[in-house]
Design a protein around this nucleic acid. Sequence first.
RNA 1: GGCGGCAUAGCCAAGUGGUAAGGCGGCGGUCUGCAAAACCGCUAUUCACCGGUUCAAAUCCGGUUGCCGCCUCCA
Length: 465
Amino acid sequence: MALKFYNTLTKRLEEFYTINPGEVRMYTCGPTVYDYAHIGNFRTYIFEDLLRRYLKYKGFRVVQVMNITDVDDKTIRRSREEGVSLKDYTSRYTEAFFEDIDTLRIERAEFYPHATEHIGDMVALIQKLIKNGYAYEVQGSWYYDVSKFKGYGKLSGVKLDELKPGARVSADEYTKEEVHDFALWKAYTPDDGGVFWETPLGKGRPGWHIECSAMSMRYLGNHFDIHTGGVDNIFPHHENEIAQSEAATGEKFVNFWLHSAYLIVEGEKMSKSKGNFYTLRDILKRGYDPVVVRYLLLSSHYRQQLNFTFSGLDAAKSSLFRIWDFIDNLGRIELDLPHNPEVDTIIETASSGFTTSLDDDLNISGALGALFNLVRRINRLISSGSLGRDDARLVLEKLSDFNRVLDIFPRENAPIEDWILEMIKKRDKARKNRDWETADRIRDELQKKGIMLQDTPKGTVWKKR
RNA sequence: GGCGGCAUAGCCAAGUGGUAAGGCGGCGGUCUGCAAAACCGCUAUUCACCGGUUCAAAUCCGGUUGCCGCCUCCA
């Protein structure tokens, strides 16, 4: 079955194709490093991680670019408030961003260009737009003349004559000629402090949209395969990127536009004023394993609004334990049995269910369903004693294969703790003496500390729950 | 006002014409010294509501209701 994606540009499910055979070039809108990223941001990054990993799973070579926006109104304002340089300020949150994506097992992109390191590319792009007649200057700032670009609105469906000024912006704040025109280059103002570049366009700093056009084309060429982001980026950001890029090059910019839906928290839009605003760090402080957060964000379809709740996190944790326990149990099998052909059937069914689902616009629910069906069917064989050691290894290999896409195991390695082993030894002695009272007391004590004991034929094992 | 999305069990969530995947939770049972894990059985005659098309609809069409998002820098 062919790989298909829902393309925001055509508003249809489309069979995926690449410009260069076997290679996918993709641009994923990255963070503005003015604060810690929140779980809504990570919902999008996890979707992009799934996309990237699945493309690789399908055998494509992937070149992914994710921008780091390290100059904008917010970064400038906050760094000035703190009295530190823009660079010092943004590098703190850039580092935090990379720590967080590592924590969530988000695979690294090939390139993470910083906006401030590509001012020259942006200036050159703006000059091209000036030359092609798409830009005009007002009081040292340069604006894009939206009326000049015929295709404006093709991504978002926005029609220019229907755009009305939003309540959030008072029109007199702007010197541009039309309310829907947008800044390519912003003239220096005293509010910018020490943040400015002296360029042929004048003294100032870039607008927001231009960086993504400049950096994506710099690393991926004028025309590339996939561009992604959150739905909120469709308009105006991505619409403007298309306008800038295509007006400058005369070529089609991107073939596939993929957008992830919003994340809400406990049924409401996440916002600081509602007190339901969470960074990754806030969640981890509550004692959740990062991979549980990964699983929750991963386990529902990217175009489906995701309701993030703490009871959902608990459910995600239980689901993961089903998989982790399954893996542990497979590793303990020592039966020496001939190959059971039913194992092949189970593996093949799961395998094709996994790829058929993901081929269908990354239908992760179907893929996980295939995985859990395998878990249940193999557990059945384990229960009936008809799964041997070699077959168990085959199953583990298939799980590792799936895990190239999912990356949900192994669990963080819990260090072996001597005091726990001591307690287990004491309990074993009690059990041998059939002193169940002591044995159970020890088990309860450990349980209170989050240590779960399991008595298996091979002895007692423990795990953190 | 314009544009777009969504409504499936207690919760999460697939399924877009052929008779409701999967996970969590719950209940009963098997195993176990007791547990845990696992297994077995049960947990939506029904897919927001009302009409229509069809041999057949959660799936298509029309309408109603409810929720949500975007509309100038928020993933």
